[in-house]
């Protein structure tokens, strides 16, 4: 079983996001980056499938600048066998079709049985890359998966639908599946894992070597802070003052006590 896991390095969930000087992206130098949350669940699912089948390899594939090397190294420390990074520099690709096409060009000769990715990235949140990639490579696809059952040449997955509904979907391999957060409990890297990760291969591919025939169909021209639609009354002061004001608001303004 050859499994590819798409991993994106994104600002960590509590990162303070500020705009860059020309409002085309965020100011990166003060931000702490981490593996995209749902991608870490996809990685764990891949590692568990490999352990369960007892053979094969897990390959971590990422598109990103040099800082993204750390995300791949972290995935290798958790147990992935090797990595591939498509190197890019700012301005980054933001079109999911372009990004998926880059991945397709980079991995088409690897003939993966399974591609797992997080359902969406916590930065752009398009949620398209895994599905487009699967379609480009002629694979079965499924999204928002919260359980997997592998049996031979096919896989059965439990998909999350809306409003608390679920559905099982079966398909033959190869398949590209997007993973919902919460599907498993991602492991921590062991000390031995961290040591052995240093010796594992990370193949670097220049984006420009792949992108010759790949169009970008959309681009982010401008980013800005959301305008407030509601007037928020901010409560400040010591904890006791805040508590007093909150009780007052509950009684007098919202009138629920």
């Amino acid at each position: 079983m050859k499994i590819c896991v798409l991993v994106k390095q994104v600002p960590s969930s509590d990162a303070l996001i500020k705009l860059n000087s020309d409002s085309t992206w965020i100011k990166e130098d003060t931000v702490v980056f981490a593996i995209n949350e749902s991608d870490s669940f996809a990685l764990e699912e891949a590692l568990q499938i490999k352990e369960q089948t007892g053979e094969g390899e897990v390959v971590v594939v990422s598109l990103g600048p040099d800082r993204a090397q750390r995300a791949i190294r972290e995935a290798l420390a958790k147990g992935a066998d090797r990595g591939i990074r498509i190197k890019e520099s700012f301005p980054y690709s933001s079109d999911p079709f372009e990004i998926a096409s880059l991945f397709a060009a980079a991995i088409k000769d690897d003939n993966f049985d399974l591609i797992l990715s997080g359902l969406q990235s916590d930065d752009l949140g398009s949620g398209q890359t895994g599905v487009i990639l699967g379609e480009l490579l002629g694979m079965s696809t499924a999204t928002l998966v919260i359980e997997t059952e592998l049996s031979g040449e096919s896989i059965r997955v439990k998909r999350e639908l809306e409003s608390g509904w679920f559905q099982w979907v079966a398909m033959t391999l190869p398949a590209s599946i997007t993973i919902q957060s919460g599907i498993n409990s991602p492991r921590y890297a062991s000390l031995r894992g961290i040591m052995s990760a240093k010796k594992k291969e990370i193949r670097l591919i220049e984006k420009n070597d792949l992108s010759g025939s790949i169009p970008s169909l959309q681009s982010i021209e401008h980013v800005y802070l959301p305008q407030k639609t509601k007037r928020t009354e901010m409560i400040t002061g010591s904890i006791d003052q805040v508590v007093d004001k909150l009780s007052e608001i509950l009684k007098r303004n919202i009138k629920i006590l």
Binding site: P96, F97, G127, Q128, E135, L144, E162
Partner: peptide, 23 residues
């Protein structure tokens, strides 16, 4: 931008090579 649309519309983007502006 429903769960169903998120499941199949990116495939149309891939087949037609036309952009999908989502969400």
């Amino acid at each position: 931008h429903t769960y169903m649309v998120r499941d199949f519309l990116p495939k149309v983007c891939a087949i037609l090579k036309q952009p999908l502006f989502g969400d």
